[in-house]
Simulated scan of single mutants.
Amino acid sequence: MEKLVYDMKELCTMLGVSKSAIYAFMERGELKAIRGSKKILFPRKAVDDFLNTAK
């Protein structure tokens, strides 16, 4: 079963980029995220969309 959301650490590892790069993608509107009180989560669909547009 695939995960429905990824946390920052998982996404950095999966994409091979730093937290700073993830924050930059978010700031430019390239990557959608759900901001909680203590965590930022990335829905699988948002990550898939990001990867598909990056090609």
Rank of each mutant, 00 (worst) to 15 (best):
M1W: 05
M1E: 11
M1F: 09
M1Y: 07
E2Y: 00
E2P: 07
L4Q: 06
Y6A: 00
Y6H: 03
Y6C: 00
M8H: 04
K9G: 02
K9M: 04
K9F: 06
K9E: 05
K9D: 02
E10R: 05
E10Y: 08
E10W: 01
L11T: 03
C12N: 09
T13D: 13
T13L: 11
M14Q: 15
G16H: 08
V17P: 07
V17Y: 10
V17M: 11
S18C: 11
S18A: 15
S18G: 14
S20P: 06
S20W: 11
S20D: 12
S20N: 13
A21I: 14
Y23S: 13
Y23R: 15
F25H: 15
F25G: 03
M26H: 07
E27N: 15
G29I: 03
E30T: 06
E30I: 05
L31N: 06
K32Q: 12
K32H: 11
A33H: 03
I34S: 04
R35M: 06
G36T: 00
G36F: 03
G36A: 02
S37M: 08
S37N: 08
K39W: 01
L41Y: 05
L41G: 00
F42P: 04
P43H: 00
R44D: 04
K45Y: 05
K45D: 01
A46D: 09
A46H: 06
V47H: 03
D48W: 04
D48V: 09
D48A: 09
D49S: 07
F50T: 03
F50M: 07
L51C: 14
L51G: 05
L51N: 12
N52W: 10
T53K: 14
A54R: 15
A54S: 14
A54F: 13
